[in-house]
Write a protein that binds this DNA or RNA. Structure first.
Lengths: 197, 197
DNA sequence: GGATAAAACGAACGTTCGTGCTTTTCTATA
DNA sequence: TATAGAAAAGCACGAACGTTCGTTTTATCC
C-alpha cells in the first residue's frame, strides 16, 4: 500500500504543529529541541535531523504558524464580502483564536521577542505581520473608510491589545471592549463615515 | 567623610539601570548574569552577590523599570490637570519614551514573555500593567467619558500597538496614527461625547 | 592607622543548550 | 521477501547557563 504522504513528511508536520503551540508559550528561543523531542517522545537527534539547525526549525515553525493563521482566521473570513463585513469577520476569528489556543497569539509572543534581533527569523516574523496589516488595510480600503492605513493600525492594536490583556489579566471583558471599539471604527449601515473624520 | 550612599547601593543601581535596558531588548530570560556582568565590566560572582538568585535580579529589574516608567511617563504628566489633558500627556510621554529607549517598551517585551509562566515574576509584571491600566481608567473617569474602562483599554492598545509596529517596521507614522486615534476617543473642547456612544 | 565588614573576584560545579557523527531500525518498493 | 534508502536513535562534544565557594581587594568606622 502506498501511503499518501511518506513517514518523514508527516513526522515533520507533527513536529511543527507542536512547535507552533510551544513557541506561543515559550517563545522561539524557549522552543528548545530537547523539550520538543521529549513532548513528541522522540530523540533530540532524530528530531534535529528534520531541520539541520535551530534557526531552520524556527523559520519552519513561523511558516507553519502563518499557515495555521491563514486557515483559522483569514480563510473563514473569505465567506464575507470584502469591506466592513470581512473586517468584522477577521476580527472575530482572531479573537476566537486567541481564546482557543492555550498559548495565545503566536505573533504577539514572537514579534515582541525578536523585534530587536536582526536576522532571518525577525525578517520572517516581520513579513507575516506586514501581510496581516496589508490585508486589514486592503479591506479597509474596500470598506471605503477615509484613512485605511490608520484603521488597519487601530484594528491591529485593538485585537493585539485584547490578546495581551487577556493573557495577563484573564479578564474576558477585553474581548467585548475590542469588539465595541472596532465597531465604532467601521462604517455603519445607513451612516457612511467612520475612523477619524 | 561620610558618603551619601554606600558603594554597594550605587553599584546595585548601576546594575539595575543597565538591566532594564538589556531586558527590554533580550527579555527577562535573555537577561543573563554573565552578559550583564561583562557589560558592566565586573565579575559574574560579584554581580550575582547583589541579588542571590536570578529571580531576585529579575524582580529587582521589574521594580527599577516601574520606577523609571513612573519618573519618565507618569510624573511629568502630573503637570496637566486630571482628565483629558492628563491622558493626552500620558500618551505623549509614553510614545516619546518608546522612541527614546533603544529597546522600546520594557513592559511590552516582558509581559509577552511571561504571560504564560506563572510565578512571582509574572505577578510583578501583571501588577505593574494593572496599575497602568488603572491610572488610565482613573483619568478617563475624571475626563467624564462614558466608558472609562473601555477607553483605558483602547489607549493601552493604541500606544502598545504603536510600540510594537514601530519596533518591527520602523515606520514612525504609527505614532501619528496612535495620536489621532486617541484624540478621537477623548472629549473634544466644545463637544462633550466620545468613545463609543 | 588598624580592625572589621562589605564588595568584588576567579575558579569550578552540575545542567542544559545546539550540533555532529555513527549505528540501528523502519519502510517502501522490485 | 529481499534490499536500498530514509528515518530515528545513541552518544559525545563544546559552550553557556545559574550558582557556590574560598580568597582578595576595597570601604567604612573607632
Amino acid at each position: 500500500m502506498t501511503p499518501v504522504t511518506e513517514k518523514g513528511t508527516q513526522t515533520r508536520e507533527a513536529i511543527l504543529d507542536r512547535a507552533v503551540d510551544l513557541a506561543s508559550v515559550e517563545g522561539l528561543e524557549g522552543l528548545t529541541i530537547g523539550r520538543l523531542a521529549a513532548e513528541l517522545q522522540m530523540s533530540k537527534s532524530g528530531l534535529f535531523a528534520h531541520f539541520g539547525s535551530k534557526q531552520d526549525l524556527q523559520l519552519a515553525t513561523i511558516a507553519a504558524a502563518a499557515e495555521r493563521f491563514r486557515a483559522t482566521v483569514v480563510e473563514p473570513a473569505l465567506e464575507q464580502p470584502e469591506g466592513a463585513a470581512r473586517l468584522r469577520a477577521l476580527a472575530e476569528r482572531y479573537l476566537d483564536q486567541v481564546d482557543t489556543y492555550s498559548g495565545g497569539c503566536f505573533w504577539a509572543a514572537t514579534s515582541a521577542e525578536y523585534d530587536d534581533r536582526p536576522g532571518p527569523v525577525r525578517d520572517a516574523i516581520a513579513a507575516a505581520l506586514d501581510a496581516w496589516l496589508a490585508e486589514l488595510e486592503h479591506q479597509a480600503r474596500a470598506a471605503g473608510v477615509e484613512h485605511p492605513e490608520r484603521l488597519a493600525f487601530e484594528m491591529y492594536s485593538l485585537v493585539m491589545g485584547a490578546n495581551a490583556r487577556y493573557r495577563l489579566s484573564g479578564d474576558k471583558r477585553v474581548f467585548g471592549f475590542a469588539r465595541e471599539a472596532i465597531e465604532q471604527l467601521l462604517p455603519q449601515p445607513g451612516r457612511p463615515a467612520q475612523a477619524g473624520s
